[in-house]
């Protein structure tokens, strides 16, 4: 829902990085996006195209999104399971004493630039 706001944040971060590294052009940006990060990849890509084209540094840069699977851990039976398929209830023992191990990441992994 707030993909555009998130894109502005990425652009701010990369503008700073561009200055630090004296970059002329960023050609591509690779993100790592957890399955349950709450960000919708297609909306993010659309927002990126619009916003990146308004900057010199990132104009036309490709946004590459790598999805990371979400995994939940059950404290009662000590098992791990897929969060997207089962949610908060452990499919093995039915417990709700579970917590997310990974899957809410939202990282800028790397950029290709000159």
């Amino acid at each position: 829902m707030h993909e555009l706001g998130v894109v502005f944040r990425i652009i701010d971060d990369l503008t700073e990085l561009g200055k630090e590294n004296e970059l002329e052009k960023i050609h591509s940006v690779t993100l790592e996006l957890g399955e349950v990060s709450g960000v919708v990849p297609s909306l993010l890509t659309d927002a990126w195209k619009w916003a990146a084209d308004r900057t010199e540094l990132m104009k036309g840069a490709e946004l590459i999104i790598e999805t990371l699977p979400a995994v939940t851990f059950c404290e009662d039976c000590k098992s791990e399971y897929e969060t997207v398929a089962y949610g908060k209830i452990c499919p093995k023992c039915g417990s709700n004493h579970t917590y997310l191990l990974k899957g809410n990441e939202f990282m800028i992994k790397e950029i290709a630039a000159t």
């Binding site: 998130v6 944040r9 990425i10 971060d13 990085l17 590294n21 050609h27 993100l31 990441e105 939202f106 990282m107 800028i108 992994k109 790397e110 950029i111 290709a112 630039a113 000159t114």
Partner: peptide, 10 residues
């Protein structure tokens, strides 16, 4: 073209 590792949480 160089690849710069960023590894920064948004």
């Amino acid at each position: 073209v160089r690849v710069i590792e960023v590894k920064r949480s948004i």
